[in-house]
């Protein structure tokens, strides 16, 4: 985030009046308070996952583990079949969806960014219209299940997330930044359109690809809604939907318990829920510090474009 928020350094040279001192005190307090409010739920989650079930039953969740215990994680990793499968599904969906989505978004943005492409406004409108009007859940559901036969297919998760107008607009900003002369001279040198796209445009679009790739990957990783609609086979549950099931349905919890060889009554359900949440969110929290700046860049471009 730092890149965009260098602030107004010049102003710092001016001496602060008492009223502006109060402003700064309030600013620090409000921002710090908000940061804490954003952090606390994560602390409750992590601490809950490391707290002995008995403590939670009697005293409830806390922001730090009072009675430390790793039994929830032991259950998950004793027989990690459920978690491992869900991880596999999520990774598969995220990788395939992100790759295909990137290719489609880059190709479309490139064509629509080419000023010599005569029908670019018409195509842009064709895509943009879908953000103004759509068939809604029922029509999509009936069409997917009855006519495309996508029940229990991971394509029901991958296909709808591949192309979005928002991503296309951001990518087009990157495309427009590439000088037209480059394309012209490649043409003169005898390169075909495909060649130009793959060996000149794509390498130059790397920053855009990184940004959009991360947006896509995050959306796929966090997707549970499409899984809830279309997937009933528990072996095909992605991580977030499996997590939701663990929270909502006792049977999902007892399946994990059975795999770990525990009697259902002894399942530390509260701490187990939190441990599952940690396991499902872990990858995002780990990569977050490294990818944050790409999201800031993408959101900034998206907002400028409107």
């Amino acid at each position: 985030m730092a890149a965009n928020t260098s602030g107004f350094e010049g102003a710092s040279k001016i001496k602060n009046s008492p009223s502006s001192m109060i402003f700064y005190i309030i600013a620090y307090i409000v921002v710090a308070f908000m940061a804490i409010v954003c952090l606390v739920p994560f602390l409750i989650m992590v601490s809950g996952s490391f707290t002995a079930e008995k403590y939670i039953t009697f005293h409830g969740f806390n922001i730090y583990p009072v009675e430390f215990s790793t039994s929830a994680y032991q259950i998950i990793f004793k027989n990690p079949a459920t978690v491992a499968k869900a991880y596999g599904v999520s990774i598969y969906v995220t990788l395939l969806g992100t790759f295909l989505g990137l290719m489609i978004t880059a190709a479309t943005s490139y064509v629509l960014g080419r000023k010599d492409f005569k029908y670019r406004n018409k195509f842009s409108f064709f895509f943009y219209f879908t953000t103004l009007f759509n068939g809604g859940l029922v029509c999509t559901y009936i069409f997917f299940v009855r006519y495309l036969h996508l029940s229990n297919s991971l394509w029901a998760i991958i296909l709808p997330g591949m192309f979005s107008v928002f991503n296309m607009l951001i990518m087009r900003t990157f495309v427009v930044g590439i000088p037209t002369a480059l394309i012209e001279s490649a043409k003169i040198d005898g390169a075909g359109e495909y060649r130009i796209f793959f060996s000149i445009i794509l390498p130059l679009l790397k920053p855009g690809l990184a940004t959009i790739g991360l947006f896509l990957a995050l959306a796929y990783w966090n997707n549970w809604y499409n899984a809830m609609l279309f997937i009933t086979d528990t072996d095909k549950f992605p991580l977030q939907y499996m997590l939701y099931n663990t929270l909502q349905k006792a049977e999902a919890m007892s399946r994990i318990a059975a795999q770990a060889g525990i009697v259902v009554a002894d399942v530390p359900s509260n701490s187990l829920k939190m441990a599952m949440a940690v396991v499902a969110t872990g990858p995002i929290l780990i990569v977050y510090p490294f990818v944050q700046k790409y999201f800031v860049a993408g959101i900034t471009i998206g907002s400028v474009k409107g």
Partner: peptide, 26 residues
């Protein structure tokens, strides 16, 4: 201070609503 608070405030954007549901539960 700025860097850390900004990162924390941006964090909820990255999690799924399922996790928010778990926070509500907790």
């Amino acid at each position: 201070f700025k860097k850390i608070t900004q990162s924390l405030i941006f964090l909820p954007y990255f999690i799924s609503w399922v996790l928010v549901g778990i926070f509500v539960f907790a």
